[in-house]
């Protein structure tokens, strides 16, 4: 595996430094729970509706409520070309991985035959969107008063050139000398990983090191999530 030299990060950050973050809870009054999460230029708004009646009926599960995610990049959010509105193969995949990343903390057994809907909209993106979406969604679920065993914090780590970095932006993801992008979602209170994808090439050693970075970064995000949730009720 050859990798080109990457001496300094494009935006001057440390290798393990996250972009500036901002989080807010309860921003959408008509939703049952909502949250905003911003990391660098990537912004995600999450709205939770439910538990509510689920139709079509064949989708109902009499043993538990189900979780449905809707990830949506707005047309003007991308870098170059306008993003075509509506679902795509990519958004379909992200809906699924979001659902898988969030379900391990969520307990919907008290709500059989219902659905909890999460809508995540991204008005501005600069890589790491699925991680921002998961982070915002987990805050919105907590805000909706659902039974959860913890929050989920997600961050992308990866290898840009020959360096392992945290929270890649678009320029780094598109690095000419080769980049590996690894979105990771962690339950910080238990240390479990609920999302792990990989786009690119890394050695086993580098992957293990990247995951260590991811866990540390997730803890930082978790602190911000906690602060945002508590702020809503402290006036």
């Amino acid at each position: 595996m050859k990798s080109a030299k990457y001496e300094k990060r494009f935006d001057g950050r440390d290798w393990e430094e996250l972009r500036p973050m901002n989080a807010k809870v309860g921003i959408i009054p008509r939703a049952d729970g909502s949250a905003m999460f911003q990391i660098g230029k990537t912004t995600a708004y999450a709205a939770v509706y439910g538990p509510r009646d689920l139709h079509p009926k064949f989708m109902q599960n009499p043993r538990t409520g189900i979780l449905r995610c809707d990830y949506n990049m707005l047309p003007f959010s991308g870098h170059g070309e306008r993003v075509r509105p509506g679902g795509s193969r990519r958004s379909k995949e992200i809906n699924l991985v979001m659902q898988n990343a969030l379900l391990p903390v969520l307990d919907l057994t008290d709500f059989p035959n219902t659905v909890v809907d999460i809508f995540v909209d991204l008005p501005q993106t600069d890589a790491g969107t699925r991680c921002a979406a998961i982070t915002a969604a987990s805050m919105a679920l907590a805000d909706a008063g659902l039974s959860m065993k913890g929050l989920v914090s997600a961050v992308a780590v990866g290898k840009v050139g020959d360096k392992i970095v945290v929270d890649l932006n678009y320029d780094e993801e598109a690095f000419e000398g080769g980049a590996a992008d690894i979105p990771v979602a962690v339950i910080p209170s238990t240390g479990e990983i609920t999302l792990l994808q990989l786009d690119g090439e890394v050695s086993k050693e580098d992957l293990m090191k990247a995951l260590e970075y991811a866990k540390r970064a997730a803890n930082k995000i978790h602190e911000l999530q906690k602060k945002a949730l508590k702020e809503k009720y402290h006036e």
Binding site: V105, A142, M148, K149, G150, L151, I187, P188, S189, T190, Q225, K226, L229, K230, Y233, H234
Partner: peptide, 8 residues
């Protein structure tokens, strides 16, 4: 105190 899910 206000607590969040997963807090000890």
């Amino acid at each position: 105190d206000i607590v969040v899910p997963g807090e000890l």
